[in-house]
């Protein structure tokens, strides 16, 4: 699946998007896999309360299932307007 990062999440991880092969069942499982990879991921995901997640461009939750999802995006709370 494609995993996208925006704003300071993108800056901390150091890239805007990547393709990830995963069997993670939920967003939380995917986050745990990413955090185990490297310190920069661990730091970016250290406070999930400060993060939002979108699945296929719809706002979702960290306990949502990933079955059938093609695009996951992580970002801080939005500041439009």
């Amino acid at each position: 699946m494609d995993v996208l990062y925006f704003a300071w999440v993108r800056e901390r991880i150091g890239l805007p998007r990547e393709q990830i092969e995963t069997d993670a069942a939920t967003v939380n499982d995917l986050v745990a896999e990413l955090r185990a990879r490297e310190d920069r991921y661990d730091m970016a995901f250290s406070d999930l309360g400060a993060l939002r997640v979108a699945l296929d461009q719809q706002l979702s939750d960290f306990d949502a299932p990933l079955a059938g999802v093609r695009e996951v995006a992580f970002f801080p709370p939005m500041t439009g307007g």
Partner: peptide, 10 residues
């Protein structure tokens, strides 16, 4: 729009 549209200001 302020908190549900995916924009981020710097």
């Amino acid at each position: 729009l302020k908190s549900r549209a995916p924009f981020w200001k710097r």
